[in-house]
Amino acid sequence: MDLKLELIVLPVSDVDRAKAFYESAGFRLDLDKAANEQWRAVHLTPPGSEASIMFGKGLTAAAPGSVQGLYLVVPDIEQARAELVARGVAVSEVFHDANALVYHGHGGGDITHDGPGQGRVTGRHPERADYGSFATFSDPDGNGWVLQEVRMRAPGR
């Protein structure tokens, strides 16, 4: 049986501000629909992704900014970072985790790569290992994203 992740609901405090942010970051707007004053859904898809995000009013009781560790896999971390920065997104410098072995799609340590003392070293992984180089950014509410460089996927991925 195939189980494909299709959609992640993000909690946001200001729907229009979040919509503007994600559109400026290059996400494709798929839907913006309001049924009434209490319910609105905005659906966007990252470039090249089969999975999407949705936020709005009346969709979740989660606190705005509480979603962390959303990974966007990119073939060239420096290029992806530069494009997001050119679009006005504040993105961390590229880094790798000095304390972790890169193993089957997980760099180890704190999976969100956002805490102090996580062994961050500036720059790509020294061997440019797949799954080993990262950059982070957040939306205006603090929902956290991780760019991860993968040029060749692990078998079965």
Score class of each variant (00 low, 15 high):
M1T: 15
D2P: 12
D2E: 13
L5W: 08
L7N: 14
L7Y: 04
I8K: 04
V9Y: 00
V9S: 07
V9N: 09
V12F: 00
V15F: 00
D16F: 00
D16A: 05
K19D: 02
A20Y: 01
F21G: 12
Y22P: 03
E23F: 00
E23V: 04
A25K: 01
D30G: 06
L31T: 15
D32T: 03
D32G: 03
A35H: 05
N36V: 10
E37P: 13
Q38W: 06
Q38V: 05
W39I: 11
R40Y: 04
A41T: 13
H43F: 09
L44I: 14
P47R: 07
P47E: 12
P47V: 11
G48F: 02
S49Q: 12
S49R: 07
E50V: 14
E50Q: 13
S52Y: 02
I53G: 08
F55V: 10
G56V: 06
K57E: 07
G58V: 14
G58F: 09
L59V: 13
T60C: 03
A63E: 11
A63V: 14
S66R: 11
V67R: 09
V67C: 06
V67A: 10
V67D: 04
G69E: 07
G69C: 02
L70H: 03
V73T: 15
V74I: 06
I77S: 07
I77V: 14
I77H: 01
E78T: 15
A80D: 08
R81A: 12
R81L: 07
R81C: 10
R87Q: 06
R87I: 03
V89C: 05
V91K: 04
S92Q: 13
E93R: 07
V94F: 08
F95E: 15
D97L: 08
A100E: 09
A100G: 15
L101Y: 06
L101Q: 14
V102H: 03
H104P: 01
G105I: 02
H106R: 02
T112N: 08
T112E: 01
H113A: 09
P116Y: 11
Q118P: 00
G119I: 14
R120I: 08
V121M: 04
E127R: 00
E127T: 11
R128M: 04
A129Q: 12
A129S: 13
G132Y: 00
S133L: 03
F134G: 11
F134V: 13
A135E: 07
F137E: 01
F137H: 10
S138Y: 01
P140Q: 06
P140G: 05
D141N: 12
N143H: 12
N143W: 02
N143T: 15
G144C: 04
G144F: 02
W145G: 10
V150A: 12
R151E: 15
M152Y: 14
P155I: 14
P155W: 05
G156R: 03
